[in-house]
Design a protein around this nucleic acid. Structure first.
Lengths: 132, 132
DNA sequence: TGTAAGCTTAGAATCATTCCAATTCTAATT
DNA sequence: AATTAGAATTGGAATGATTCTAAGCTTACA
């Protein structure tokens, strides 16, 4: 499987980790994924999960997300999006673009700076928590 | 000292941590700050540095920044800005707004979502590294 | 089928941070 | 100035997340 230039050998474990992440919308952590993979592959080790996540990430099939300190989260949504993080319940949701967005229009970066990617984390209170 | 609603008792250690951060533009980590404070207060412990950073953060005098996994960085720039992170040399620089920016205009957040803050991290290659 | 390369494992090691219990300091009150 | 309660500070232990290591296992293909 090749994408964005890098290749990964899709071993059964890597495929499972990828499939589990692709069917999750909750931005699970490595241990969340470990727990879910164990249901299908009881013998898998946490080290393997970390290893799979690393290979999938560097192949560009998934993305690692850092919203706060503590565990990294992972995300298989490769469409352009940002993360909304509810500070009350901890939920993370993807928000997709409503309009064209070019960061260099909004912030003065020094001349010659090259942008490869941008991470936007919006923190606040989700709908459900706001209602309470 | 009070700002944004919270108070901190500005003990000598807290003042030093704050002053060191306020005069730094490199977004130092807790251990960077520890090393710098030791020059003035040789007896200070790392636990105290962490404690000072936590109090200053919750009083709103400084901000904690998470750009990657690993150590948190700290920033005393309270003006609206985003962080540019050079993936080659690791340098972090502040970029200030060139234009008015309202996140809710650019991304479709569910109705009822309340935004309290937004963290933007732009990753790429800085001017000096691009030139090489 | 032999073999090198890459995958997986359990457990150890590391790193960053937080916790803890003891001590010291501060500031307000006698 | 002494008393005292509440904070601040300390060193070290504990924790949590991740990475490393060394050994065994698989796979593709020569």
């Amino acid at each position: 499987m090749a994408l964005l230039g890098a290749d990964v050998r899709l071993t059964p474990h890597r495929r499972e980790v990828f499939e589990i992440l692709a069917s999750s919308t909750d931005h699970p952590t490595a241990t969340d994924i470990f727990d879910r993979v164990k249901a299908r592959s009881p013998g898998i080790s946490l080290a393997t999960v970390y290893n799979c996540l690393e290979h999938l990430t560097s192949a560009g099939l998934i993305k690692q997300v850092h919203l706060e300190r503590g565990q990294s989260r992972y995300c298989a949504n490769l469409h352009e999006h940002v993360h909304f993080h509810c500070e009350t319940c901890g939920k993370v949701i993807d928000a997709h673009p409503a309009a064209e967005f070019d960061p260099s229009k909004f912030w003065n970066l020094p001349k010659g700076t090259k942008i490869t990617r941008m991470d936007v984390a919006i923190h606040g209170t989700c709908e459900a928590c706001s209602a309470r």
